[in-house]
Simulated scan of single mutants.
Amino acid sequence: MNEVAVDLDEMREKILSEPDVILDDRDIMHALIAANEKALGTNIIDLRGIAMERLESRLDRLEDTHRSVIAAAYDNLAGTNQIHRAILAMLDPITFEGFLKGLGSEVAAILRVECIRLVLESPSGKEGDAALGRLGDVLSVVEPGYINDYVTQGREGAPIRPVTLRQLRPNSDRLYGEATQWINSEALILLNFGEGRQRGMLALGAEDPHQFRPNQATDLLSFFAGIFERQMRRWLG
């Protein structure tokens, strides 16, 4: 009994000297509140306990929101850094051939996509631009109207956004070739090379079906597209 009394005295002194140890421990506070409610009996309502429970619930929601905001900020920072690195890699080449090669290798690796395709519309279609077609697998020369049809999937009157993100497997291998079987999501970025020039499109194909989702923000890809257009105007003269 004496040992128990000594232990209780030491515990009491510890609590009195450092009350924050108890107040900061959620499990201990729950136990104390439960013991207090039990002592009050069933015919007494502890409004203070109810208020504390509500405040605790609000605190939990605030903590969850705080974690979500921090996670979103880190993701946005990581995405910004990724786009910046891709742009720097895209600005390095001094020839169009090197530009296309880097686009399909280094830039694709930085953006974590399986393949990148630069689509250019030409009045003569693919046959009339065989020289361009020989520059590599990254470049696809197509007939006018192909980009609209591909983005809208042939639906007349469907809205066309500057950047389209979607989760699907392409129903044709014309754009991605053999890589089509691995593509489960894609980003389609429309390109404007200036007045009097045909349209263009940058297609990013990813194996991960969740990499490009319709509910994602597109501001970083729009920024990337702006730099890409300016770089392409150099090669187009």
Rank of each mutant, 00 (worst) to 15 (best):
G200A: 02
I183Y: 00
L120Q: 09
K14G: 12
I22R: 02
M90Y: 01
S122N: 15
K38I: 11
S122Q: 15
Y74L: 09
D24A: 12
L77Q: 09
W182N: 15
A51L: 10
D46I: 14
Y150V: 03
T80G: 09
D92L: 11
I70N: 04
G200Y: 03
D25M: 02
D60R: 09
G41E: 08
L8M: 04
F99C: 15
A73S: 08
V21Y: 12
L236M: 10
R58M: 15
G145N: 06
E18T: 11
I116G: 00
G226S: 07
L220S: 10
R234N: 00
L135P: 01
N2S: 12
G125F: 07
G133H: 08
V113I: 03
L190W: 04
S122F: 15
R85F: 07
A5H: 11
P170N: 02
M232N: 04
T65G: 15
L165P: 03
N2I: 14
A35L: 14
I44T: 07
D24V: 08
A39R: 11
L88W: 14
R234K: 06
E37I: 05
I94Q: 12
M201N: 03
T218F: 08
V141P: 10
R54L: 13
E3A: 13
D9T: 08
A31S: 04
K101N: 14
K38V: 09
R197M: 06
G205W: 00
E207Y: 09
M11G: 07
I94S: 13
D27P: 02
E127H: 09
G237F: 01
Y150G: 02
M29G: 00
G194T: 04
E63W: 06
G200K: 03
G133R: 08
R199V: 11
Y74R: 10
L62G: 13
T95G: 09
L59C: 12
A51K: 05
R12Q: 09
N36F: 15
P214L: 05
L191M: 00
W235M: 01
A109V: 04
A225W: 14
N171R: 14
M29T: 03
I45K: 14
A109N: 07
H66I: 06
E207C: 11
M1G: 15
D92E: 14
V142G: 02
A78V: 12
L111P: 04
F96G: 05
R26K: 11
A131M: 07
Y146W: 14
H84G: 07
D92M: 13
N171F: 14
I83S: 10
F228G: 00
L188M: 12
I83V: 15
I183G: 02
R48V: 13
A72R: 07
V21K: 12
A89F: 10
I147Y: 01
D173A: 10
R230I: 13
D60F: 05
L165F: 04
C115S: 14
D27Y: 08
T42R: 11
D129E: 15
N215C: 06
G128Y: 04
G49Y: 06
V21E: 12
S105Q: 07
E10I: 13
H30Q: 03
V138R: 08
G196E: 08
E143Y: 15
P170M: 03
I45A: 11
I28G: 01
V151T: 03
L47I: 13
L47E: 13
P162A: 03
L188P: 03
Y146P: 05
